[in-house]
Amino acid sequence: MSATLERARGTLAGFERQEITVSGIRTVVHSAGQGTPLVFLHGAGTFTGFAYAQAWTQTHRVIIPYHPGFGESGDDPRIDAIGDYALHCLDLFDALGLGALYLVGYSFGGWMAAETAILQPDRVSKLALVAPAGLVVRDPPAADLMALHPRDVPAHLMHRPERLKPFMPEGHDLEFAALRYREQSALARVVWERPSGNPKLERWLHRLRMPTLLLWGEHDRVRPLAHAARWQAGLPDSRLVVMPDAGHLVLEEAPAAAGHIATFLGEGA
């Protein structure tokens, strides 16, 4: 394995690695800690690892699955819509024997979390959406990462692109490039024709009755902060926390961001 990916895996130190088959798909799940289950749905790139999740293990049983087509999980070419991922998540919850849980989703995983919770709102006690994708907002529009020139991507992901450097390989890294290609291919199945998201998502946001946290980087160039207001307009019970000096990858860029999630989940518990 490449050094970069080794380092990403290292962020899961102390987690137990579990490999289960969910409707035919090899699904790798990492979990650690005790308490109410906190399922974290990662975004469209797993190469930055999960360092921010360590803190949550103090108070929760943190469960981090790799989605089909991402990280260490297998591929499933039958999955070509966000609804497939949502149903896969529910299959996974069943397979893990999870009842009520906290659901945290990041970017693409935030969209996935919202769609999953819409299907079974009673299962999700609290929902945290971190720079979530999926909501179609005309103005200002989401950036279409599939249409950006590669050289422009870092400046879209981080408010200060140099902060991405520790996560990137030095020189030619075959494994890194192959992983990125594979994950982008899985993402493309869902978003190529609809880069902004699901035009019907807004129609069903009222089903997300649970307390919901929106966590945003102030300078997010992929999903501009203005999108938060649109989410809030549709969500029955939401609050917004904005991290200054951070862009789309707010959990990596703002070390304090993960703590806001812990605080939110800890309230009234």
Binding site: L148, H149, P150, Y181
Partner: peptide
């Protein structure tokens, strides 16, 4: 260069083989 490799246009194996031969 933006138009060179849309994700999924070739199989992962083909992409990998291409990268390997470049390496």
């Amino acid at each position: 260069g933006r138009w060179a490799t849309p994700p999924g246009y070739v199989t992962e194996a083909t992409q990998r083989a291409g990268l390997e031969s470049q390496v």
